[in-house]
Nucleic acid binder design. Sequence first.
DNA 1: GACGGAAAGC
DNA 2: GCTTTCCGTC
Length: 590
Amino acid sequence: MKGRGFAFPDWAYKPESSPGSRQIQLWHFILELLRKEEYHDVIAWQGDYGEFVIKDPDEVARLWGARKCKPQMNYDKLSRALRYYYNKRILHKTKGKRFTYKFNFNKLVLVNYPFIDMGSGRVPQSAPPVPTGGSHFRFPPSTPSDVLSSSEELRSPGMFSSVARRMARGSVSDCSDGTSTNSELEEAVGADERGAGPDRAYRGLLPPRLTHDSLFRIYPNPGLGRHGPRHHPESLSPFPVSPLPGPGGLLGPTLSPALSMTPTPHMPYTPSPSMSSPMLGSHFSFNPEDMKHYLQAHTQSVYNYHLSPRAFFHYPNIIIPQPHRPTLEKPGRPPPPRPQGGGEDGPLHPSPFKFKLQPPPLGRKQSDSGSSLASASSSSQSSSYLGSRVSEMPLKHFNIPSNLPPLQVEPISDIESEEEVEVTDISEEDDHHQGNGSGSSLSAPPHGNPEDDLDDDEEVFKTPATPAVGPALLLPPVNLKSEPGQAAPISPGGTLCIPLKLRFKRRWSEDQRMEADGEREEAEDKKVRAEGEERQGRKGGAGEVASGGGGGAAAGVILGLMLPPPPTQRRASSELQRATAQLSLENTGC
DNA sequence: GACGGAAAGC
DNA sequence: GCTTTCCGTC
């Protein structure tokens, strides 16, 4: 079983992660071509946000065929393969434009680049966004040796030699060993990064660590670094940083088009550590302050973009606020244990969070027969997928520095898991959402490209509805023990004295009790608060800061970071603490 | 050209 | 599982 994955869906890892296989996937190949200047007469970004046009279908097909050692390849076949991506939400067709497709980067972006303000408008395709201001979130400096990798050299347009070009063009083809005709990127990964081990695949996909060079690429500054001037905004994709994991990017240091947008005002754009953490292992650590910034923004993204709180799997010590779920919104509710990716691959490295792709869009036939079924099955599919993995997360493998302030994951109930709006749930269904008025008041402004089918832009970049309630993100001063789901993997000695099932059962019973208590307390709280607000109201004060209602949810989240938890949550926290302490005792006793 | 079903290959 | 190949349909 695949026990790893963070943020990116499976397919994002495939090209090099398939053990023993160096097969490249077509979408990846397309990206490869797209990011090479040499092929801009063959295939190039066009329009905006991941849209590209195949200028020379035959040539692209030929290249693809060469790469796959399929000399019979033609555009018809290639396009068939591309069409299979529709269902996977990797690609979709730009309607009305011949040979024009569009990558669905939005899902990747939302999870990995939570700082992006999806509603801030468009950025010219060829203009890699330069993050405004400095990064509050810095990756630790890397060793100088990491700064210049062979892959970097090879990826460089300027360094793309004629030989490489010939290879890439297919004039040099070696299909005998399965290597690609233009596999310079793969080869550039370097043998040392293909070492054995459970994380091998990631090593092939991700840079050993974010380097200065990486940073310079992310924040282009011609005056900095050896490679700054090498960047050709016109020749590179609209992505300054790859939304996809790559050794410096298999796809190069490119950013999703959706990322080419203004960072949120309160959170300067920074690359998500999630991208690099899987392979960073013990080499990677966060500055606590930076981590906090990151978590804040990540949390915000959950609200802003309806991200699944599971996107926080990597950061188990943070409380994820529970948006507008009144009946379940009980502080201290334990989530089921989260899959951490260790899985059978071994827990040597923190594993990336994996989320499932959206369900395939309805085909022509399906859409004829109605969409309700599809969306129903989609949610259950997603939730069951995640739910089944929930108990596999060894939290101890998180690489959270010990000096971080103790945070805690806000529990998510099983029920909630079932109902969860998945990370990837931003697509066709959104049309309905918009229709039924649940769309957000924060939704992105319409994008300017008149040729774009509206569906696309709306589908990809629309800001999901803002939760009605934005409870504070808590940074409790106490390091609460994890709830069963989480406690299990980190129980003392790492052994589970109580079968997981039983633990859940117990936990459930406790939860029921706590919930009942909590409801009583909440009622009391409300009463008290009502009285308080009444008093405030009489004084003319505005005391709604942390309640985060309506469109202010995101702000509420951020504010919540700096505010103490509301009384109910504090109380629930202590309840939780007691309960978990008890549970802990139960576990240690056997 | 675009779509997608079906079957087969790897 | 991801194409590749073929093909009928729009």
